[in-house]
């Protein structure tokens, strides 16, 4: 599903964010990216949906060499990749329902699809009753659920999550992890960057550890360290 071949990313001023990274992630896997701040976790996530270009190396997503993708095809790649962020990136002038519906509208899904998909996904994340609320009327955990609903409403093949529990307390984080686990069980590949030791240790999934841009550990059913 995802394959990195000798991928390096060097930013301006010779800042090496990723160094000769190699890995192979299969369909349906749940992978944690761990490591200290600045170790290259976010860069790796951003490379996967082509928000960044690798300096060298090749990245394959769903069998496609995304470095060779025409720029007009990038939106279609991203429709297969859901994204969840630490800061949720919800639109504050839209309700919960509208935030999720927006993701379908802007890729041209017909209205009847929006009308059936959005309530279904809100049900899944447990926010049916709050569909008319605005993001600032919700708790952090609820906002992250909306953001996950938006990322998953289009049933992507891959879900990328960049520290989704970074702003949440441990109890709320557990709820979010249950949700991501449930999404993973539907066959969606999940790649999640995190600092959260207890989550990684409880879930016991594949762990890829990065340090100063290099992959130093890749372990099935791993722990944080």
């Amino acid at each position: 599903m995802i394959k990195l071949e000798n991928v390096s990313k060097v930013f301006k001023g010779d800042v090496v964010a990723l160094r000769e990274a190699n890995c192979d992630i299969n369909k349906g896997e749940f992978v944690f990216l761990v490591g200290p701040s600045g170790s290259g976790k976010s860069t790796m996530i951003r490379l996967l949906n082509k928000q960044e270009e690798p300096s060298t190396g090749a990245i394959y997503v769903a069998g496609k060499h995304i470095g060779q993708l025409n720029s007009w095809k990038v939106p279609y790649l991203r429709r297969n990749i859901g994204c969840v962020f630490q800061d949720y990136k919800l639109l504050s002038n839209k309700t919960v329902y509208e935030n999720v519906a927006f993701a379908l509208e802007v890729i041209g899904r017909p209205r009847h699809v929006v009308k059936t998909q959005v309530p279904a996904i809100l049900e899944l994340v447990g926010l049916s009753k709050k569909h008319k609320n605005y993001p600032d009327e919700l708790s952090g955990g609820e906002q992250q659920r909306v953001s996950i609903a938006r990322a998953f409403v289009n049933r992507p093949l891959i879900l990328l999550a960049d520290e989704p529990t970074g702003n949440l307390d441990p109890a709320t984080s557990v709820g979010i992890m249950r949700l991501l686990d449930r999404i993973n069980r539907t066959g969606t590949t999940v790649v999640m960057a995190t600092h959260d030791r207890s989550i990684v240790d409880t879930m016991r999934r594949r762990v890829i550890e990065l340090d100063r841009g290099s992959i130093i550990r890749d372990q099935a059913r791993g722990v944080y360290e």
């Binding site: 790649l77 994204c83 990136k89 639109l91 927006f102």
Partner: peptide, 17 residues
């Protein structure tokens, strides 16, 4: 710009935006 950012992330085409 925040809306545009979200639109791009969920895969809206440039023309649509």
């Amino acid at each position: 710009r925040r809306e545009i950012e979200v639109m791009k992330l969920v895969g809206a085409t440039n023309w649509f935006i």
